[in-house]
């Protein structure tokens, strides 16, 4: 195939990934096809979270779990190689609306999630940002804990 222009190039790269999957007998579901396409289009080395962000822009129904399962499968089948740059996991950013702003307290023992809002905390965060020379535009907070034993 003569590669002239982005479209042909994109198809060529995508075909290579899909051909690898077919060669190894991997059934191509739609999520796998989308993930393979995003991987093909990536010129950097995206981690699972970056991959999720890019995949989400194409198909928002694909979950983080699907990304991790697919990457694990692709790696086990030598379709992709995992690289460790020693920088740990990428952290995420969350989009939140001001109208229903709240945080979460998560019971690590049971998985129970309790929503809470604390004005004192909100004021403190704004003050910290301001003291550091910023206007706070977004943040999120999850607290993890175990329930205190009741006193008898």
């Amino acid at each position: 195939m003569t590669v002239e222009g982005g479209v042909v190039d994109e198809i060529g790269v995508l075909s290579r990934i899909e051909a690898l999957c077919a060669e190894k007998g991997l059934r191509m579901t739609e999520p796998r096809r989308v993930i393979a396409r995003v991987l093909s289009d990536s010129e950097d080395h995206p981690d699972a979270e970056e991959l999720y962000d890019r995949v989400k822009a194409i198909d928002s129904s694909i979950s983080m779990a699907t990304i991790y399962r697919t990457m694990k499968l692709f790696e086990e089948m030598s379709i992709v190689s995992k690289r460790d740059f020693g920088d740990g996991r990428a952290r995420y950013e969350k989009q939140s609306g001001p109208e229903d702003h709240h945080h979460h307290m998560i019971d690590v023992q049971s998985g129970e999630v309790i929503e809470f809002f604390n004005q004192e905390l909100e004021d403190l965060k704004k003050r910290i940002a301001r003291d550091l020379g910023f206007e706070l535009v977004d943040h999120h907070l999850e607290l993890f804990g175990v329930r205190l034993k009741k006193k008898h």
Partner: peptide, 11 residues
């Protein structure tokens, strides 16, 4: 509760 997928997964 409406949390972002990444937030829920990290939790």
């Amino acid at each position: 509760a409406g949390a972002d997928e990444r937030v829920a997964y990290e939790a």
